[in-house]
Design a binder for these strands. Sequence first.
DNA 1: ATAGAATTTTTACGCGCGTAAAAAGGGAGG
DNA 2: CCTCCCTTTTTACGCGCGTAAAAATTCTAT
Lengths: 343, 343
Amino acid sequence: MGNKRVKIRTMEELSGAIGVSRPTLSKYFHDSQSVRDTMRIRIEEGLEQYDYSPNIFAMNQNRRLTKNIGIVVPYLADPFFAEIVRNIERWCIEKGYWPILFSSHGEKKLENKALATLMTLKPAGALIAPLGRISDMDAIQRFTDEVPTVAFDSNLAVGEAFVGSDNFQSIGLIVDYLCETGEPPCFLEMPPVNPNALTRRKAYVQAMEHRGLTPEIVHVGKQGWEFERVGLSEGKRLIAERKFPTNTVLCSNDRIAIGLIAAAYEQGLRVGRGHGCAIRIAGHDDHPGSRYTSPPLTTVKQDYQGIAKRSVETLFDLVESGAKLTSRNETLLSGTLVERDSA
Amino acid sequence: MGNKRVKIRTMEELSGAIGVSRPTLSKYFHDSQSVRDTMRIRIEEGLEQYDYSPNIFAMNQNRRLTKNIGIVVPYLADPFFAEIVRNIERWCIEKGYWPILFSSHGEKKLENKALATLMTLKPAGALIAPLGRISDMDAIQRFTDEVPTVAFDSNLAVGEAFVGSDNFQSIGLIVDYLCETGEPPCFLEMPPVNPNALTRRKAYVQAMEHRGLTPEIVHVGKQGWEFERVGLSEGKRLIAERKFPTNTVLCSNDRIAIGLIAAAYEQGLRVGRGHGCAIRIAGHDDHPGSRYTSPPLTTVKQDYQGIAKRSVETLFDLVESGAKLTSRNETLLSGTLVERDSA
DNA sequence: ATAGAATTTTTACGCGCGTAAAAAGGGAGG
DNA sequence: CCTCCCTTTTTACGCGCGTAAAAATTCTAT
């Protein structure tokens, strides 16, 4: 970056300053390869000297669709989504798109509002992780009718495509691990906020039956997205009342497991697979905090980067081909076992 | 919401449909109280029947400044910021503004890019938590010259105002608590990424000296924003080499403490204030995860809601008064002790 | 050198809305 | 019923850029 002296406010001014017509500049900004090399070089040299950035609003006004990519997540305070979003944003920027982030904060009303706002931004596409059960399917449907959309994490039947984890594979993996290293696990459910909850339960049942074992599911009464709290309070109750059918507990996700480990500690139960341990606890996701529980949590790592990358790639394929897909495209990524000390 | 039948694309069409002139509509959208009640009612009834949302780009193009509020945080994957952002967004929306969120992901380059992008959006104001030490002060300065800005969390000398925690008060509080309930604490520093690191250390020193005690500071070699990792790896080393000057450790923030608790567990040290405990660990922030460590973390709660609310209020005072403040306005909020089992 | 193709410039219009100014309409008080 | 004041309508221009069409220029190949 040279020392940009003169500030230039409009393309018109820029055009005069560097001696290139405005339509050519417009073309250049739309696609720098679409003008002759001599022009491109002259423009780029000009851009070094003058400090100009195009007016985003004016740019987007006349475009049929913009370079905006909408991202909607259910809960940004969940590090899982924070991490995914980080990766998605990176990929978008790299491809020359402009990510705009919305969080539903777990509320249907806010999810709808985010979609409505997004629509007015004429985005080229959108990546959404729906709230799930409480989502307003009609609203989402109306949105996806207008905007090419890839759903991720939570597989509601919306959007042109879905990218997420292969829960059957990943749950199978951890069930196998737990069975091979000790007592078969029971399954501590998460609140059924989204399809993952259901799928993971099914996957657990299938994995157990596949081994000729009886699945044991522990339901939780609580609702909402504060999974750690659910894990803690339900965990305490279940331990106190000796309601866990087995001493190996597979949790529907790591945040539940984090709460449960806290509950076990509080109840004086030693967690782990070693001598003198009273309970084994395993999770699912490899949540950023799961390395720092006591003991560290054994879990299945979701392929964060993979999900982000595939989601973005899938979306751009959609956007750039311009075509509506004939059939819904589902990508399921595999998890990998992360063996730590809790199970 | 009635069953919106006809989709209307422009204000012109709307104007024809409900029989109100376009300039009046424009006025109404700018401030619904600025038109006569009879008009307002007629317009609002019209809005029920027709499905219209104004074109954001066209709206913003001619406004000197928009209703956009920029939010820039250093690290969205840190639940502390996620939580603050959640609150800030709520307040902005409530006041009729439109929050646009950027995360620097801990990188100077991205922080600059966020500021540059933001500038082109002609925001009415901005709320930024600078990266800190690695921030590009010139870039931030240039930004704040053009956009009314409130800094929060990290008090770099930028922006018209600052809202954050009163580290001297909060650290004083926890030091007092620790001294009164046992051995005076040593202080485990966080990587000096921002001014908070320094201020908290100073506050610790002051609090100790105030009591006539000798401050003992434990430095960490690591850098970066992965505080838990720092707490864990440094903690393990320090415990193994018996380098902690005391058996009570006050951590510069909760994320460090979370790592340290994991380290203590791994090294077989029982954490807490009860019998048979080898080390007391306390933190600072009341990070969302601090309730779920084993044992739960004793800490000082930062006033998340207060910080968010005051930041937004301060910004809107700035924006609406239109005046540059003569002197920089600093608001420091008090923390409250959260007594749990780790210390 | 010259025709033909490719690119750039010129010229001109439109996007949807903000907004200013003048004209027209409506309501309160006399 | 009329004046005065306030609100709304009419009319008109501009924002910064996209983009189409025609004219002018530059490049490529013969």
